[in-house]
Design a protein around this nucleic acid. Structure first.
Length: 270
DNA sequence: AAATAATCCTGCGGGC
DNA sequence: TGCCCGCAGGATTATT
């Protein structure tokens, strides 16, 4: 499931071979993603050069000469560079062809998106109200503390809210709270400034680590034509229900918060 | 404004 | 072997 590190890994993996190249063809085999893909894409995109590939939250921004393609991988999406003529498999919905190479979107669950927007992407309704990027200085202990002051909700839910900070999904929310030693059920506004600093740092550390891990497997990931999937990280809490905490051996506990599973160590996290 | 629930969709594992 | 069921999950949208 792509969280911010996987999206960033994807961006870094595909950018070098595509930037500066022009689209020669667009193939839409199934445009029924989260929102219908503009069926006129194959008409107006060819001929345009990819100027830059950026990321905002978990959105990928493909900047072209006359607009931007806003991509999202949803829960099951992946982007791969394949030979242009490579036979598509089930769930390979869209090809952006750049000469002999194609950028292929695969998304079994079709929660992803591919939206054309002419104009400033940051003004797009999906992007305009987003909170700070976790790896930038605009997100730190002080800003986190301030944004949590009015929040009664559990801290796990708060850090998964894109108004507070973007890019923290279910997996890394549990991992960050474990690293910070904070119980996921703690009401957000009860966290001291010091604990907010600790948590902000933990989020940065966890996400950075995951990006590095992704980077180390980039070569395998992008040159494999099978589906090796994303680099599997060693998690401290996530999906380790009943297993021994790596620090104190206490069994990891699993609870439900907001219809999502949360994992934590009842001893290390208070 | 904030909290909660419903929703989109498919693959997979467990139980029988 | 195969069917049914529950679960997984990002983020928008609607509702309270």
């Amino acid at each position: 499931m792509p969280e911010l590190p996987e999206v960033e890994t994807t961006r870094r993996g595909i950018a070098p071979s595509l930037i500066g190249k022009a689209i020669t063809e667009v193939r839409i085999r199934n445009g029924k993603l989260r929102w219908p893909v503009d069926y006129q894409l194959p008409e107006f995109l060819p001929g345009q050069t990819l100027l830059a590939l950026e990321r905002r939250a978990k959105y990928l921004l493909f900047r072209f000469e006359h607009g931007v393609l806003i991509g999202h991988l949803g829960m099951s999406g992946s982007l791969r560079i394949v030979p242009q003529a490579h036979p598509p498999q089930t769930h390979d919905h869209i090809d952006l062809v750049f000469g002999e190479q194609a950028l292929r979107l695969r998304d079994p669950r079709r929660f992803g998106a591919m939206l054309w927007h002419s104009g400033d992407p940051m003004q797009h309704p999906l992007l305009s109200h987003l909170g700070p990027e976790p790896l930038q200085d605009t997100f730190n202990g002080d800003t986190l503390y301030q944004s949590l002051r009015t929040r009664q909700a559990a801290i796990k839910l708060a850090i998964m809210d894109a108004h507070i900070v973007v890019g923290v999904g279910n997996i890394y929310a549990s991992e960050s709270l474990f690293l910070a030693g904070i119980r996921p059920t703690t009401p957000a506004h009860r966290l001291s400034r010091a604990r907010c600093t600790r948590l902000a740092e933990a989020i940065k550390t966890i996400l950075s680590r995951a990006i590095e891990a992704g980077g180390s497997s980039l070569r395998d990931f992008f040159h494999a034509d099978g589906q090796s999937g994303y680099f599997q990280q060693q998690y401290a809490a996530y999906a380790r229900t009943g297993e021994a905490c790596r620090h104190c051996n206490t069994p990891i506990r699993q609870i439900q918060q907001g219809q999502r599973s949360t994992f934590y160590c009842p001893k290390c996290q208070r």
